[in-house]
Amino acid sequence: MAQLTLRELGEIMLEFQDHGSASVIDTRALDVVFEDLECDSLMLLQTTGRIQREYGVELDRDRIAAADTPRALLDLVNTVLSEVAA
């Protein structure tokens, strides 16, 4: 079963960040809200879109909106991946 790792999430997010901050890759940033990591809504939309395409899953918009930290987004994606695999 495929799982999205923190490193993979960080690499995807960095691709869409304008300022090139590596903060989202750092495990200390797992519970920091995206806004404090300077991640705007467009970057998160692009990130989740890429995850959906690459992993072949559909992420619910309400659940994406509720995932306000890297840990929450990882948990959401990996939960959906587990549900699809079952």
Rank of each mutant, 00 (worst) to 15 (best):
T69K: 01
F16E: 05
I51P: 12
L81K: 03
T69P: 13
L6F: 02
R63A: 09
A67T: 01
L44D: 00
E58Q: 01
L73I: 14
A67K: 09
S21M: 07
D62N: 07
D36Y: 04
S41H: 13
I12N: 07
A2Y: 04
D26I: 15
R63Y: 08
D31M: 07
L14A: 01
T47M: 12
V80I: 04
H19G: 02
C39L: 15
E8Q: 04
I64S: 04
R50A: 09
M43N: 05
R53P: 09
Y55R: 12
R71F: 09
T69W: 02
T27W: 00
L4W: 03
G20D: 11
V57Q: 12
R71D: 07
T69L: 11
T27Q: 05
A66D: 05
F16V: 01
R71W: 02
E15A: 08
R28F: 05
L59I: 14
L4H: 04
L45K: 10
V24I: 15
H19V: 00
D31L: 09
H19D: 09
L14N: 05
D31E: 05
D60A: 07
D60M: 06
E58C: 05
S41I: 11
D62K: 10
V84N: 04
T5W: 01
A66Y: 06
R7H: 09
F16W: 14
A67G: 06
I12D: 13
D40T: 01
T48Q: 11
E11T: 06
M43A: 14
T5M: 10
T47P: 00
T48E: 10
N78R: 02
M1V: 11
D40H: 07
R7P: 10
D75H: 09
P70V: 03
D40V: 01
E38G: 03
D18N: 07
S82N: 12
A29N: 03
G20A: 06
R7N: 11
S41E: 09
L4V: 06
A2P: 12
N78A: 04
Q3Y: 02
D68H: 14
H19Y: 11
G56A: 08
R7I: 11
E11W: 10
Q46T: 01
L45I: 14
E35P: 07
G49S: 07
R28P: 00
I25L: 15
L81Q: 11
T79A: 15
V24F: 10
D18Q: 12
A2G: 11
L14E: 14
I25E: 11
L81F: 00
R50I: 03
R71Y: 02
S21F: 08
D68M: 14
R53S: 10
D60Q: 12
E11Q: 14
P70Q: 03
I51E: 04
A65S: 07
D75R: 12
T5A: 09
V84R: 09
L73K: 03
L81I: 03
L14V: 02
L4M: 08
Q17N: 06
E38M: 15
V32P: 02
R7A: 13
E8H: 01
T48G: 04
A85K: 07
L59V: 04
E38H: 08
I25H: 12
L42C: 13
A85H: 10
D68I: 12
R50Q: 10
R28L: 15
L59M: 10
E54K: 13
L37S: 00
M43R: 13
G10V: 05
T47Q: 05
L76A: 06
L59H: 03
R50L: 14
V24Q: 07
V80N: 13
T69F: 03
Q46S: 13
C39A: 15
L30T: 10
A85Y: 05
